[in-house]
Design a protein around this nucleic acid. Structure first.
Length: 200
DNA sequence: GAGAAGATCTCCT
DNA sequence: GGAGATCTTCTCA
């Protein structure tokens, strides 16, 4: 029999961004569609903070785009970049304190056929091994910006069935110019779905 | 109102 | 391994 998945509570998100970025590894991302459920294990994440992090969208203060980062934790911050990619973030810290964890890579678990259709590829390793890829595979768009992840509907995180057993590692963040000296990228060591190898 | 940059991906050589 | 695609958002005049 299937246990009914319970969404991770607000308390999980309402903490230090770096802590959430580490602990989100191994958690299961659940995406409910009309006629199917997609699941993937988070194997890579990056922390983006506020005023002390020049790489963060919130570094220069609140704008229409990043407003969600300043709101209450436990909601999704989805933004559009490079003309055709969405990126999924989990808002952290307390209300009024900007912070978010970028979900960079997933290991597909359930609904793989649907992910393949969404991505228009048959290659498993290529389905969700990057922030733009996983949002497409999971049909996540800016419609989900501001979505409450603690309600347990449409899009949310759950604890894995079995306690995670893996080695985690950290490295510099990827794809940014400023703030790249900070080791705020966390990933599951040796997992083939991690988007890139660690920068030296 | 216009110009520039971007937390990326895919294709081509 | 390298460069283009593509469009939203922000900044400046």
């Amino acid at each position: 029999m299937n246990k009914r998945p319970r969404a991770l509570p607000l308390a999980f998100y309402a903490r230090d961004t770096l802590l959430v970025a580490q602990e989100v590894l191994g958690k299961i991302l659940v995406r409910e569609l009309n006629d199917a459920v997609l699941k993937g294990r988070i194997v890579e994440a990056e922390a983006y903070r506020g005023t002390d992090d020049p790489a963060s969208h919130s570094y220069r203060g609140m704008t229409n785009r990043n407003r969600v980062m300043f709101g209450r934790p436990g909601v999704a911050y989805v933004y559009f970049t490079y003309g055709n990619h969405y990126c999924l973030n989990l808002v952290t810290e307390g209300e009024g304190v900007p912070g978010a964890v970028l979900v960079r890579a997933l290991q597909p678990l359930d609904g793989i056929e649907i992910m393949k259709r969404n991505r228009n590829t048959g290659e498993l390793r290529n389905l969700t091994s990057g922030p733009g890829k996983l949002t497409k595979a999971f049909a996540i768009t800016k419609q989900h910006n501001g979505l409450d992840l603690t309600v347990g509907r449409e899009l949310f995180l759950v604890e894995p069935d079995a306690p995670p057993s893996f080695e985690t590692a950290q490295s510099r963040r990827i794809g940014i110019r400023e703030g790249s000296d900070k080791l705020w990228r966390f990933y599951v060591q040796g997992n083939p779905f991690v988007s890139k190898k660690a920068a030296p």
